[in-house]
Design a protein around this nucleic acid. Structure first.
Lengths: 107, 107
DNA sequence: TTCAATAGTTCGATACTCTTGAACTATCGA
DNA sequence: TCGATAGTTCAAGAGTATCGAACTATTGAA
């Protein structure tokens, strides 16, 4: 958690797929396997890549449980490091039109 | 402002150079020309590119004034669209170690 | 134990994006 | 009109994302 950077967090969440994954993990409350929290129409190699970025940014924690890998957010820890940040981002994500979660990444 | 997206904002600020530019514009209070708010060791073509991304994300407004282009933040407008977001990000940016503002973008 | 099924990861090729020097444009003062 | 200043645009190389194919890990059934 000490080498979690603000830039890394913002970059990780600048992709609609990853933002969506984090929202679902957050909403569910309990850990979910990779595909449960990801959009259905995305190749699993891409999903794996997105999870890796979320992990490296310090946003989620992953653990193998049997045949699957379950994921949980680290929002509580992040809130200590960056107070208010996760709440503001997730609130903003909820507030925006639902369709945008499917859009391609804006660049 | 209506086509400002959360993803676009997060992406724009996931780069330390752009985050630094926004911090300086915010700290100054009054509009600054492009190079005044940017790190000195970056080529001007790169600086121009970074400003373009900040503009397209809706984070700043730019206006030519004589021989230079002056820039101001749009944090007030953004706060209406995404309450608490800009404050949380800028607070987090202030809280982190100063050296990180010089680091390369983490990926 | 062996086999098949499930869940992810890794690899490699293609496509896209970032960075930056060079050339170009716009504005102003002499 | 010329020169200086401030940015923008262009193009090439480096870097990164995406996604199908191959691979690995785990489990449960035969």
């Amino acid at each position: 958690m000490s080498d979690v950077t603000l830039e890394g967090v913002l970059y990780a969440l600048s992709d609609p797929v990853r933002l969506d994954i984090l929202r679902k993990l957050r909403a569910e409350g309990c850990p979910l396997n990779c595909q449960s929290a990801a959009p259905a129409d995305i190749p699993k190699s891409s999903i794996s890549h997105h999870y890796q970025i979320l992990r490296e940014a310090g946003l989620i924690r992953s653990e193998r449980r049997g045949v699957e890998v379950v994921n949980a957010t680290r929002c509580e820890e992040l809130s200590k490091r960056f107070p208010g940040l996760m709440k503001a981002i997730l609130d903003a994500a909820e507030a925006k039109p639902a369709k945008e979660t499917k859009d391609k990444k804006p660049r």
